[in-house]
């Protein structure tokens, strides 16, 4: 008596492969592998065989059993996977619906610009020094070479508290404090950011409160070329590596010589556009070599030491950088405005 084992295997495997569901597969498993199942029935036949036939028969039944087990296991995985896929398909969501709100907050644009400028100079080894906004006349004016009857006082209409005190009109006041405090610990390399106040009516280009950052370097042998090189580096860090700067004669009581510094326009690259009013240049800084009187007043020998100073308007820089057309926008704090300034670029 011989059987076609291959045919049997094929028949079983085909039935397993076509099982439509997990239940059908389980029934088939019982039918094939259960106590009263087909495989067991074959095993029962063995005792009717001759001893010499049993070995081969036994091996053949075992092979068949393994094949069925493997096929069932394979089918089980397949059916489970199908079932999961069906379940997942039903769970489909509309991924285009709005996200939950986890917006990162913003820094005020003036803070962004101030920190950017601070970081450029900190990288060059400058210390950041602040000072009082309610200041003494002596630091704001006298020590900055602007005595009581100096016409430059007219340039800066001042909020006075009393005869001695005022709201500082320029962060130069901080520089004068630094010179006084560190005059015996040269060299000095500082930048001084802060709020300043002028007795101006607010309009699109004027604000009674604004922000300045001034820089001061004092040491032996500091020259006008050091000033130019430093500010060139600054302009390129702030407005791009292609920027050029040009110095124009100007006047500040605490520097001599004094210059305004123009940076080639970052919008048009110097060809002329509406941002630079067609000139190709944008006025961005005031600067100069520290006036010998200022050094002398601080007890620093002006015959031995020299220095340079510069000042940057933070509002003006922010307005240029972001194209803000009215300075008052910076002080209204409208969230629709503030939320624009997400990036630190």
């Amino acid at each position: 008596m011989s059987r076609n084992w291959d045919l049997l295997k094929k028949e079983f495997n085909d039935r397993i492969a076509s099982a439509p569901s997990l239940q059908a597969l389980e029934q088939l498993r019982i039918e094939l592998l259960g106590k009263k199942g087909s495989v067991n029935a074959l095993m029962q036949e063995m005792k009717n065989l001759l001893p010499e036939e049993r070995k081969d028969f036994g091996m053949a039944v075992n092979n068949l059993k393994k094949s069925v087990e493997t096929a069932i296991a394979g089918k089980l995985t397949e059916l489970k996977e199908n079932e999961l896929n069906e379940k997942l398909a039903k769970e489909k969501i509309d991924i285009t619906l709005p996200a939950s709100d986890f917006t990162y907050g913003t820094l005020h644009p003036l803070t962004i610009v101030q920190q950017e400028i601070e970081d450029i100079f900190v990288a060059m080894g400058y210390a950041v020094v602040e000072g009082p906004e309610v200041e003494f006349d002596v630091y704001n004016f006298e020590k900055a070479n602007i005595p009581a009857d100096h016409p430059a006082r007219d340039m800066q209409d001042t909020f006075y508290v009393d005869v001695e005190r005022l709201l500082r009109t320029q962060t130069t006041a901080i520089q004068m404090r630094v010179l006084e405090a560190q005059g015996n610990k040269l060299p000095i390399k500082v930048i001084c950011p802060g709020k300043v106040y002028r007795r101006d009516d607010d309009d699109a280009t004027h604000s009674h409160q604004f922000t300045q950052i001034e820089g001061l370097v004092v040491g032996e042998g500091i020259t006008q070329a050091d000033l130019k090189g430093t500010l060139e580096l600054f302009a390129r860090s702030m407005f791009g590596p292609q920027r050029e700067i040009r110095l124009r004669q100007s006047y500040f009581p605490f520097t001599e010589p004094s210059q305004e510094i123009d940076v080639s326009c970052h919008v048009c690259g110097g060809k002329g556009c509406s941002t630079c009013k067609g000139t190709g240049w944008i006025e961005i800084l005031g600067s100069g070599m520290v006036h010998p009187h200022v050094l002398d007043m601080a007890g620093i020998e002006s015959t031995k030491y020299s220095g340079f100073a510069f000042g940057i308007g933070v509002e003006r820089t922010a307005m240029l950088k972001y194209g803000i057309d009215d300075i008052r926008n910076l002080y209204l704090n409208n969230l629709k405005f503030l939320r624009n300034y997400k990036r630190f670029d």
Binding site: V122, K189, G221, A225, D226, T230, R246
Partner: peptide, 19 residues
């Protein structure tokens, strides 16, 4: 002013940074 060159201050290093 175009006669002015560009250099960086050659002075002893001092400690900078934020307070």
């Amino acid at each position: 002013y175009e006669n002015i060159g560009s250099t960086l201050p050659l002075i002893p290093t001092v400690q900078g940074g934020l307070s």
